[in-house]
Design a protein around this nucleic acid. Structure first.
Lengths: 114, 114
DNA sequence: AGAAAACTGTTCCATAAGGCTAACTATCAC
DNA sequence: GTGATAGTTAGCCTTATGGAACAGTTTTCT
């Protein structure tokens, strides 16, 4: 519950930065090393590593080190959490629309909208 | 393009806070005033107002003042931006999976994965 | 062994986020 | 017109973010 909420915090936070979204998009094409991922960006490696760390902390990517290079891959089921939240959200306001509609089309029905 | 990216920045940023997500969920049931929205939270009004301001800046809600009370309502099509991004994202890695599958099932086919 | 590659750790900096209190403005209800 | 209501402004504090520089450390290559 709070675990869930906390996850969403970190996931949305991670997605709020264009660099990190770009990394995810890149990883959508397949795994890559930190160095490969960092190349397109005009940024010092340590700075870039922070983004990787945040992505991993949010659970959106998984990494493991082989030799001196760290490999990163995407964790798609993590994005499903957002799907879930969006679906809930949509259910709320389409549910409301439905109730409103019932109320309008069946004026006798006691279903307090609001 | 960059406008789009910028929008996502603000939308994800807005969603990264539990208070703001709760406000959105409440607004999913229908419009409400700032006071009504603030009631469940143990927080000073000025602090709460910052959340409202951020939500409005991200475009996720719309507000307008009538008399001395400010009314807030949700802006559902804004969430569709996230849907779009998620869909793109999924297209990437399912596309990859498909290619990988073709590669696996047709070993003779020259389609370098990765 | 020695050098280069690929991170990692540490420290620093500027700005933004999230909270607070106190004082202020603008309605609305008598 | 007084007083309560509903926000708003302004200032302060603390922590987190996104960036940089510079000095390690571990592997790999020759």
């Amino acid at each position: 519950m709070e675990q869930f909420s906390n996850s969403l915090d970190h996931i949305f936070q991670a997605l709020a930065d264009p660099t990190r979204r770009a990394v995810l998009e890149r990883l959508g094409h397949g795994p890559a090393s930190v160095g490969e991922l960092a190349m397109p960006f005009d940024m010092a490696l340590p700075s870039f590593m922070k983004h990787i760390t945040m992505l991993e902390a949010s659970g959106l990517i998984r990494t493991h080190k082989r030799g001196r290079v760290r490999h990163c891959s995407i964790e798609p089921q993590r994005l499903a959490l957002i799907d879930g939240w969006l679906a809930d959200q949509r259910a709320l306001w389409t549910g409301r629309t439905d109730r409103l509609e019932r109320f309008v089309t069946q004026p006798g029905h006691k279903d307090k909208p609001r």
